Simulated scan of single mutants.
Amino acid sequence: MTTTTTYNISETMNSTVNFTGFPWAAEDPVYVIVRRTQTVLLPIIIVVGIIGNSLAVGSFLSKSLRKTSCCLYLGAKSVSDIGFLVSLFIFFLLRVHVTLLNHQGVCQVTVFLIYFCPFLSIWLVVVITFENCIRISQPALVSTICTTAVAKRVIVGYVVVGLVVYNFPFWTTRIVNGQCASATELEHIQRAFTYMDTFLTLVFPLIIMLILVPLVAISALSAFKRKKRLVQGQKRVKKNKKAAASPEAQVTRMLFAVSVVFFVLHTPSHAIRIKEMIIYMSYSKMPTYQDQIMQRIFELIYYLDFCVSLVVYLIFGRNFRKVFVKQYFQRCRGKSQSMPFVQNCSSSCADSEIFTKKARQ
């Protein structure tokens, strides 16, 4: 009989759900507490995340925001986050003995989404960071690069790459003895894809953002000082207020928030995955007790990234907040006046371009 490896309900990586490789897991009190905590918190994270991202999609695709490239990227990210949370919910159902996952078709699609959606979300964050860098450091390229046409092509490109790279669950995953599993003869293939996923969703994005974020910070600071000099030269009474509310400052705050959320919530889970991968490849050793405990904790932190996005947008995205309130809390007023602005969700495209023209004078 073929030996199989079933997918863990709380991991994006494949491992044994019955802990045959970790006989201590079922009885260790600390591990049991951590897993029970996961069981309680996961459905809350999933429900809040699906609702929050659905509301965010509605705002980003509204008439006043969908005209900007960044909002298209963030809208696509919200859809991707919903896909991940839905697949995570199907995995979670195994813990409450609902075996929806163990059906042909559902098994393959769910495992595919658990890989594909995080890949898409992470790289959309990277391209948003890159676009903000262009807006601040190379304003002359904004009209060429930061357009909805380019955004649509980039999003389609990411989707195509993701489909090509992460289609392996459709041919390595099957229903074996009533369980969603991958056969042992294909385990080496799946492990290779898992290692590749680690590089695609952590190493490469991390390196790129470590380069882009300092560039954005330096460029934003320079732009802010330049704007301040212009305002002072005009000798306006409200110069300090205008300087503080500059689009460049808004870009910096939003970018900083997105970057911090990305690093803080993603890095711990991926870091321990890299550690386990290196140890296994070098010494063929399984994860230690401490590593397993930490991995479960870091998984919860990782999952938070897919449900807190709406909060980040509302706190740091002034224009998004206005559109959100108008769309969901002011419908009773009927037709209101059209928005006097069409801005980037994290910054004002229009204001940035106006500022650029002034800076050139």
Rank of each mutant, 00 (worst) to 15 (best):
V164H: 00
V30I: 14
T5E: 09
V237S: 10
R296T: 11
T20Y: 10
L300H: 05
L210A: 12
T184P: 00
D351E: 10
I207E: 04
E248I: 15
T6F: 00
Y283A: 14
L93F: 07
T184E: 08
Q190M: 13
F91D: 11
N319T: 12
F306R: 01
T288F: 09
F112K: 03
I189V: 08
V203S: 08
S338A: 14
L93E: 07
I218M: 14
W171H: 07
V312F: 03
S346H: 02
H270C: 15
I218A: 14
A181Q: 04
Q38S: 14
C146I: 00
M209D: 08
A140S: 10
V86H: 06
V203N: 05
T194S: 15
Q234R: 13
F329R: 03
V264R: 01
K357G: 01
V40T: 10
L41D: 02
A350D: 11
Q250C: 09
V213K: 06
L215C: 09
R153Y: 04
S62V: 06
R35Y: 10
L94N: 15
M254D: 00
R360D: 12
T39H: 10
L120Q: 15
K238D: 14
T148F: 02
Q179N: 08
M339L: 14
T20H: 10
S59L: 05
V111Q: 12
V161F: 02
V126L: 03
G83F: 07
F298E: 05
D28L: 06
E131M: 05
